[in-house]
């Protein structure tokens, strides 16, 4: 595969560029990821959690906050990478011409996009970990098993970075990102089993839920949460890994097509 062959360790330099910019405004950037999960947990803990006490999942009765915690981690992981490789990458590519500048150096398009995907993944790891820290203050996570959520945040980050990059490869103006956000991200957030078990949905809706990658991420994260695994865990993990590999190559290929005429 030419795309794979053209990726080099120099991708890290693109990651480093984004990191350098990120730590410029470190205060905002490191506080923000804590703020959002705190709001989620307070809203659901003080609000909905008062009404819904327990949720049955995989033969376990989970307290509601404990049930949604892995779902919220998955959501935050999804958001941070998706918004990075859509809006943020698009601004760098299209408005700031940062990719053009980098192309004047020994790096190839493949390096640049790989660097961007790794950066999107990093944002997910930062966000996922922040959420874990907040959740730990509420005693919602059990260690050490919960530490597995960090590599799983990386996996989720990679999935949603590549999905974001896929949209970036053909979108014309930044406003057009509203379409995938409303038609894909919002339904995914609501129907991937973050707030209620998918099994309560009517059969046709369950089928739709299994189109969403977030569903699989929430499954594996929740299984970690209850420390109880079955085949669904394995299937979900494999689906996410395969999806990452396919989308990784596809998104780089499509970006190359977009940028090199």
């Amino acid at each position: 595969m030419e795309i794979i062959k053209n990726i080099s360790w120099r991708s890290i330099k693109v990651w480093q560029r984004n990191w350098s910019v990120y730590i410029e405004t470190w205060l905002v950037n490191f506080v923000m990821p804590f703020f959002e999960p705190l709001l989620y947990l307070l809203a659901f803990g003080l609000g909905l959690g008062k009404l819904v006490k327990e949720v049955p999942y995989n033969g376990v009765l989970m307290p509601y906050l404990s049930f949604i915690t892995p779902g919220l981690i998955g959501t935050i992981v999804m958001n941070y990478s998706f918004y990075e490789t859509t809006y943020a990458s698009f601004v760098r590519m299209y408005h700031q011409k940062t990719f053009d500048a980098i192309l004047s150096t020994p790096l190839l398009i493949e390096d640049i996009i790989t660097g961007e995907l790794l950066w999107g993944t990093t944002k997910s790891i930062i966000a996922g970990t922040s959420m874990m820290i907040v959740a730990s203050f509420f005693h919602l996570l059990v260690y050490p098993i919960a530490l597995w959520l960090i590599p799983l945040s990386a996996l989720g980050g990679m999935v949603f970075s590549t999905i974001g990059m896929l949209f970036t490869s053909f979108i014309k103006t930044i406003e057009q990102f509203n379409f995938p956000v409303f038609l894909f991200m919002t339904p995914m957030f609501l129907f991937s089993g973050v707030f209620f078990p998918i099994s309560v949905l009517p059969f046709w809706a369950q089928k739709i839920a299994y189109i969403f990658p977030l569903t699989y991420l929430v499954i594996i994260m929740r299984d970690i949460q209850i420390n109880k695994f079955n085949l669904a865990f394995l299937y979900s993990l494999i689906i996410l890994i395969i999806l990452t590999i396919i989308l990784f190559i596809l998104s780089i290929g499509l970006m190359k097509k977009r940028l090199i005429k």
Binding site: T98, A101, S104
Partner: peptide, 25 residues
Amino acid sequence: CQQEDNLDPDLNVYQNLFVYSRYFD
């Protein structure tokens, strides 16, 4: 040196050159 300016607006003058030097290792 391309026709269009594509300096990095997220970085200052010095950082622009420094980040660029990293691409060349």
